[in-house]
Design a protein around this nucleic acid. Structure first.
Lengths: 361, 361
DNA sequence: GAATCCGGTGCAAGCGCTTACATCGCCCCA
DNA sequence: TGGGGCGATGTAAGCGCTTGCACCGGATTC
């Protein structure tokens, strides 16, 4: 259509050299003009910038990384991008990083340890100066790999002051325990869980442990807890619920390891003609937007996504920049009492102090 | 804790040199052993691999990219990661790419043209051999930038055979028009829309145009269409609906530009005590998982995420590898009639052929 | 007026890898 | 038994950038 009258049909990416030539200076000066504008005379700088603009120059990251031996890039590996669970926290993380002058590179592991390891290597090969990881559980080899290269890693979405890597997160077990305590106080004694796979996923494992602990503390037999393990997904949550309800001693409350599974369970309950929370209570974990859209609204544990992301950015930036010894940060994860959890049918009519939302702070 | 008795407390990343030295060969041989295993004698290869393992060697991507002048990396820039709309398609894209031997790098633009441009530059600087972009509308400068560097770009999530970049997608306007046609056939004449911002977002604009076209074709005044424009988000969808219903001539059907907005609208309707679809019909676009979890289930347009991602991977891989002239691929996006769309109240009791799901294929 | 200082620049040495091209044995055929 | 061919390996020249160090000339100081 519109052939702009360009100087020549160059089809090669302009380099620092080209800019230098055009501006009539050395490559060193161009480099400085770009990276430390105030170490260069204003007139020179303008000339350089003009040349940059004329040529449409854009620096080659690989070359830069190689020469400078740092990239100002942070890598993050999350288990999945398929739902919003990690998205919000990541957004906050990215914003925080940007304020600190870092760029974020994201990869996903599809909840696979092997894939996570591969992604870690990839990100490091691409020059990540630091890494954000989800959860503590991973192969020893990875820590060695990172240590040998002096690449700091920060764990989030979990908290453990004694783990290999420092963490900025919350106590999954305690949070889930609080929720289970509440259910038990309401009169539930037949609990069941729908959990994500717990191998290689300490968050999931901790959440199950939290429920067991609550049961034990209340004098219930923790061995009685039926746990259905299933991969992520709304449909999977539904199928799991169907299985649970087919058992002889169906539960009166189903605690789900995350909101996605819970929403699936909720949907399945509706399809089965079950009234929630009348016939059955269902709870989630994470408090993603979905939880408030569900019908009935989902009682869940609120994870401080944004705060976690922001804090993680701050801490990791310090680690990378100053080689600072990491400070672990423990954040609160509190209950969101909504409509999907209520006393079991038999107990209704008693004191209703828990219902609905009486304990919402 | 456990100080493994390593040879020496090296704190420097091993390089090709180190591997070569340890294996007793030249760096060229190591490079070949890694990249073209069969061009190296088996014995040598084994020795190299052993050295690689011993040292925990991992190649420096930047250096490799610089020397080889290609990266086998494809970049994708999506408007947002905050919800699942693009996630599924991206997953398929990534899978397809992997099969072709490419790695995917993802960035998000937060629906901002400026940010998108920056991300494009970043990805190119990082060595992307090709780019996946969402939608056609963008500054001319970007195309020039890409052209000058010979970097192929493929557009998806939209289809336009005549646009600057080839596309693998569907016709947003036609799809939305089909949906609007259906609503009108059912007897709706007071339509309204809740749309994402249409500037710099041709998908959104096309969808609005589709509704207008349907109205015009049915003899309704397209100028009558109230369109509320709002950013992404469930809450925003809710607020928009509240606005819409506060007007004197409230609509009987609200067509939303995407499922997220629609679910928000649905929720708001419930809060307002409106029966959907009795008092008001609401529809979405995208058919993400959410649409089936909503109550009532959302009538929407199904976007062929997976197929689109897979096709895009195939086409883009060919473009990058063979410099192949791009083939545009048009995919169908068809209606999913579910419970949230029904004839307006006044017309109920007439022939109910459309309700509920009579036309579901 | 000479010595000193200092902001602004250029020079050139790599950073870690790939890949023409050269080299080296060894096997095979005449 | 000598030469050609060929598979396996080494040599070395960059890829595009940053940065320590040297250099230069004008302003400042005594």
């Amino acid at each position: 259509m519109d052939r702009a009258p360009t100087d020549a049909p160059r089809l090669t990416t302009p380099t620092l050299q080209d800019v230098a030539a055009r501006a009539g200076v050395s490559t060193a000066t161009v480099s400085r003009a770009l990276n430390f504008p105030d170490r260069v005379a204003a007139a020179t700088r303008d000339r350089v910038m003009q040349a940059v603009a004329d040529l449409g120059y854009s620096p080659n990251f690989g070359a830069r990384a190689m020469a400078a031996r740092r990239t100002n890039t942070i890598g993050a590996i999350i288990p999945t991008m398929e739902n919003a669970i990690f998205a919000r926290g990541l957004q906050a993380f990215q914003d925080g990083l940007r304020a600190e002058g870092f760029t974020l590179l994201v990869a996903s592991s599809a909840y696979s340890a092997a894939e996570e390891e591969e992604q870690i290597r990839t990100l490091v090969a691409r020059g990540a100066d630091g890494l954000l990881l989800i959860g503590h559980e991973r192969d020893r080899r990875i820590r060695d790999f990172l240590d040998a290269r002096g690449i700091p890693a920060l764990v989030t979405w979990a908290f453990d002051a004694n783990a290999a890597h420092p963490s900025v997160g919350f106590d999954n077990r305690a949070a889930m325990r609080t929720l289970a305590d509440r259910a038990i106080e309401m009169g539930h004694s037949r609990l069941a869980m729908i959990s994500a796979d717990t191998v290689g996923n300490d968050r999931a494992a901790e959440r199950v442990a939290g429920v067991r602990k609550a049961m034990a503390a209340a004098g219930l037999d923790a061995a009685d807890l039926t746990v259905i393990v299933t991969p992520y997904g709304i449909d999977n949550g539904g199928r799991a619920l169907a299985q649970l309800m087919a058992r002889d001693r169906a539960p009166t409350v189903v605690l789900c390891g995350n909101d996605v599974l819970a929403v699936g369970a909720l949907r399945q309950a509706r399809l089965m003609g079950l009234d929630v929370p009348g016939d059955l209570s269902i709870t989630g974990f994470d408090d993603i937007e979905l939880a408030q859209v569900a019908v009935p609204e989902l009682t869940t544990v609120h994870v401080p996504h944004r705060k976690m992301g922001a804090e993680a950015a701050r801490v990791l930036a310090r680690m990378v920049r100053d080689g600072a010894p990491a400070e672990a940060v423990k954040l609160p994860a509190d209950l969101r009492m909504r409509a999907s959890l209520a006393p079991p049918r038999a107990r209704r009519g008693g004191p209703r102090m828990w219902w609905p939302g009486a304990s919402r702070r």
